[in-house]
């Protein structure tokens, strides 16, 4: 039944949407948008690394994304103004990644596949990697949910409750790198951050608890994925960007409806 490429694409998209939803909530709550950017843009460097060393793409991306996420998390912990620095890292990683891929010898790499994803080319093997990675990422967040929320609210308060905020940050970092690695094939390096942030932001007006926000984000993410897939067939548009466009439309709709839901 997985022989239908449309079905595989839909399943891959749903897997990414599910993993991105709870993680995206934390990215929004902790104001880590640039963190998501830097990590996902670093994926391109991971592609270059994997291609040049003949490694699986997923492995290369996971390693480089994790390294970048750790660097950014380390900077975040310090008492320096990180906004500009994060911007440098995010865009620098993208540019250097593009250059690195173009320098690869005897490879005619289809750059747009890595920048915007190629969800319609997802294989059964890809599907296994995507769902496996998504499952691990979701499991990590569910396991540490209460602790992560506490550390997000206030690190000192978390410490006073016997938690280690640094460890929770590490869990989040790991989940982010994992999600970036599995999402690359689906939406591409440029738009992974969008799939993290937009569904979560769109879910905010309908949520009174963190848990409902994560679930709403998952639902909105799935609608965006499937809607984008359908739209890309109907209008013959690129699939990844179509998915993000639908998500952005849903966000606009949600922002318009927000006053109705505010008590």
């Amino acid at each position: 039944m997985l022989d239908d490429f449309v079905l595989r694409a839909a399943l891959a998209g749903v897997g990414v949407a599910l993993a991105a939803a709870p993680l995206g909530c934390f990215v929004v709550w902790r104001r880590m948008a640039y963190f998501g950017d830097a990590t996902s843009h670093a994926a391109l460097l991971g592609v270059a690394l994997a291609l040049s060393l003949d490694l699986p793409i997923f492995g290369g991306v996971l390693v480089v994304a994790l390294a970048m996420a750790l660097i950014v998390a380390g900077l975040n912990g310090r008492n320096v103004s990180t906004d500009a620095l994060l911007g440098v890292l995010a865009h620098g990683a993208l540019a250097i990644g593009l250059v690195a891929v173009s320098l690869l010898p005897n490879q005619r790499v289809d750059l747009s596949a890595y920048l915007f994803g190629e969800i319609l080319a997802v294989t059964k093997g890809d599907l296994a990697v995507i769902w496996g990675g998504a499952a691990v990422s979701i499991a990590l967040l569910v396991w540490r949910w209460q602790a992560l929320l506490s550390a997000t609210l206030n690190p000192d308060l978390a410490t006073a409750s016997g938690l280690n905020p640094k460890r929770e940050q590490l869990i989040l970092t790991l989940a982010l790198a994992l999600t970036v690695a599995v999402a690359l094939k689906v939406v591409g390096a440029l738009l992974i951050a969008a799939m993290l942030i937009i569904p979560a932001a769109a879910a905010r007006p309908f949520s009174r608890t963190p848990e409902t926000m994560a679930i709403m984000a998952a639902i909105i993410g799935m609608i965006a994925t499937l809607g984008g897939l359908a739209a890309s067939f109907a209008f013959d548009t690129p699939t990844g960007p179509s998915m993000v466009s639908v998500a952005a439309l849903l966000f606009a709709l949600s922002a318009g409806l927000a006053p109705v839901f505010r008590r």
């Binding site: 308060l157 409750s161 608890t209």
Partner: peptide, 24 residues
């Protein structure tokens, strides 16, 4: 422990009850 200040980001929906149930 009552911290000096606690800023809850406007994007984080949280009831008083939910807040008191964190992390335990």
């Amino acid at each position: 422990y009552v911290p000096q200040k606690l800023q809850i980001d406007a994007t984080l929906p949280l009831t008083v009850q939910g807040f008191l149930n964190l992390p335990h």
